[in-house]
Simulated scan of single mutants.
Amino acid sequence: MAESSSAAAASVANAAKRLREEAEAAKNRLLDQQFHISRYADPLVPRKTSDPQFWPKDVTREMEQRWLAMIKEHRSV
């Protein structure tokens, strides 16, 4: 009798382990492996300027400064 209960317990433990492994594998397939939270600013802190990471290709800080100056000039008129 003790053998059958230990075999059943082992079977349940193996099934639980297999379910955990399958769940972990499914979770890993759903996650973006390239995502790193450190690349993004804290969303609750006000931003002082836009993040260059999201700028179109070939846009520089100098271009942004010039555009912001033009916008400020036109708003003051």
Rank of each mutant, 00 (worst) to 15 (best):
S50C: 03
V12K: 00
N28M: 06
V45W: 03
A16W: 02
P52N: 05
R47S: 10
R75D: 14
R66T: 13
H36E: 11
K17W: 11
P52Q: 11
L44G: 02
P52G: 12
S5A: 01
A41G: 09
F35N: 00
K17N: 10
L31A: 11
V77T: 09
A69L: 13
A41V: 03
A26L: 12
A7C: 00
L19R: 12
V59H: 12
H74V: 14
K72N: 14
R66F: 07
W67I: 15
A2S: 05
E64G: 03
S6E: 05
D42L: 02
I71M: 08
E22H: 09
V59D: 11
T60A: 02
A26G: 07
A69S: 13
S76H: 12
P46A: 11
W67N: 14
A25F: 05
F35A: 04
S5T: 06
M70R: 15
D32S: 07
P56R: 07
H36M: 06
E3T: 05
R18V: 07
H74S: 15
S11I: 01
A25Q: 06
N28C: 04
R61Q: 15
F54D: 07
R75M: 14
E73N: 12
D32Q: 08
A15W: 01
A13I: 07
S38W: 02
L44Y: 09
A15F: 04
P43C: 02
A25H: 06
L30H: 05
R39C: 14
E62Y: 11
D58Y: 12
E62C: 11
E73L: 13
R29E: 07
A13S: 11
S50G: 12
Q53V: 06
I71K: 10
E62H: 13
D51K: 00
T60K: 02
L19F: 08
K17S: 14
I71N: 04
E22D: 15
A2V: 02
R20A: 15
L68G: 08
S50D: 10
K27P: 00
V59F: 12
Q53Y: 10
H74D: 15
E3C: 05
P43Y: 04
R66W: 11
F35M: 02
S5Y: 08
D51P: 00
